[in-house]
Design a protein around this nucleic acid. Structure first.
Lengths: 135, 135
DNA sequence: CTGTATCCAACGGGATACTG
DNA sequence: CAGTATCCCGTTGGATACAG
């Protein structure tokens, strides 16, 4: 069950690897963000806010987040059934991480975009010999 | 070529999604970390430090990082050829992000591990009816 | 509504061999 | 050394359809 892509002996080489695995595995960021914004959401509400996710995958990721203690699932035995998801205190403790990320994006995202344009424009010139040619 | 998994209209819903795509796509973290620690590394040195990565994948990720302006590649036309990779100023600007991540890990990683143990131990009890049974 | 079960396609990535 | 070229397999995730 996923079970951490083997960072065996890699934690020492890259101490943040375990954290990245937990917080930035696919779909977790938009899910946590949605739950961070609105305090408590039902399954369909989450489905709408994440928009492109399918119910199967949403379930998988929610189970993972629940297991990691970042999200709390509350089941209401009614008809029709109602389930609510909310971010936990541990999940909220990620706020500084997200804040730093937001700040970096605001300050440097345009630099990345410019680097990409420069790189893509600069391809084809004569210095291409430092790379092997494709095709 | 990867070309950002469509966050079309998703940036608004999750503003940090683009940043996550750039910084936390697979393998980029250990690579950036290695280059952050030691200022300048050759291909094989990187290969050794990341350890479990194959040359093909390492090349792919380095190209991506170079295109995003996070890593600088320097080709020395010698025999045998020598190529050096180093982190750019833009790459170094990620330091606060990594620092926040490190702090969070130090403070809360054990909580995640405890949550996992609790969750795994608690499965099988009677409340399993809130989930569908498998098999 | 809140999921689960199946089938399937796409892609990342490993193994291996080879080039300049 | 610094990659590239193939082949190929496992996992992720989309599309349906269906259940409690």
């Amino acid at each position: 069950m996923i079970e951490n892509t083997k960072w065996t002996g890699q934690e020492a080489a890259c101490p943040i690897a375990p954290v990245v695995d937990i917080v930035f595995s696919r779909w977790t960021t938009p899910i946590l963000w949605a739950l961070h914004q609105h305090g408590r959401l039902r399954f369909v509400e989450l489905e709408r806010r994440v928009a492109t996710i399918t119910p199967k995958v949403l379930t998988q990721r929610l189970r993972q987040l629940e297991r990691d203690g970042l999200v709390l699932r509350t089941y209401h035995p009614e008809v029709p059934p109602r389930v609510e998801y909310e971010i936990t205190e541990l999940g909220r403790s990620l706020a500084p991480v997200f804040a730093t990320l937001t700040e970096w994006g605001a300050a440097h995202l345009h630099e990345v975009e410019r680097a990409r344009r420069d790189h893509d424009d600069a391809r084809e010139p004569l210095d291409q010999r430092t790379y092997a040619r494709r095709s």
